[in-house]
Amino acid sequence: MNTEQHLSTNANVLEFVTVVAEYCAMLERQAEHEKDIFVERMQKLLPLLYLKASLLPEVRESEDGFIQAYVTEDDWMAIFLGLKDKLGEDNEYLEVFDKRIEFNAEPIVVSLAENFADIYQDLRDFLTNFHLGTEELVEEALWKLQSDFTDHWGQYTVNALRAIHHIITKQEDSDEL
């Protein structure tokens, strides 16, 4: 395989890795930012994250690949609790694209902090594998990332953006009063 074919040097992969690193750093350093700054940064990062994920080259699942998980339950919980506290009353929002809706008479309430922490877990695991891995590990990590994007974190990203949009426009509405 020549250098031009290596996923670890592919321009779309490298751009995605840059956005992932920024997202992870923002969540890891959430305590350093006021709520309004954090929300504004998420408003910009989420669509960029989704776009860059959609531009990744498709990879096939390897038959013997294994991706190491690096985010522990304690890591996830620290991110979640910090965000839950930071977002306060804006943490929960009504979900409209949840399969449970068809079986439930009650609205589905979800946590923005949980969405962010779940996205973080997949992205941080990918990023760590990317930086530590061989070309084969990078390919396997990309496959897993794309699979997880299709299964859940892609939807979490757009759902979170909808909630972030509501928080920002609600703030703007209250500023006009």
Rank of each mutant, 00 (worst) to 15 (best):
E140I: 04
L83E: 07
D74R: 14
D122V: 02
E89T: 08
I37M: 11
K84R: 15
N115D: 08
Q155E: 14
L51F: 13
R124W: 02
F80Y: 15
K84C: 15
F149D: 04
D118N: 03
F38K: 04
K52W: 12
E95D: 10
K52Y: 15
A105L: 00
L55I: 10
E61F: 00
E114I: 03
D74C: 02
G82P: 08
M42V: 07
L123M: 02
L55G: 12
E73R: 13
T72Y: 12
L94H: 06
L83F: 09
A160C: 00
E40H: 14
V158K: 12
D125N: 01
T128K: 02
Y50Q: 11
T150C: 10
M77D: 15
E89P: 05
I67W: 08
D36V: 12
F126Y: 05
L56H: 09
F66V: 14
A53W: 07
A69I: 09
V158Y: 13
Y120Q: 03
L56S: 07
S62V: 10
D85V: 11
A113F: 06
F38C: 01
R124S: 05
F149R: 09
A69C: 11
L137A: 06
K99V: 00
E73K: 11
S54N: 14
D90P: 04
N129K: 00
P57V: 04
K144P: 02
E139C: 09
L48V: 08
A78R: 15
K144N: 09
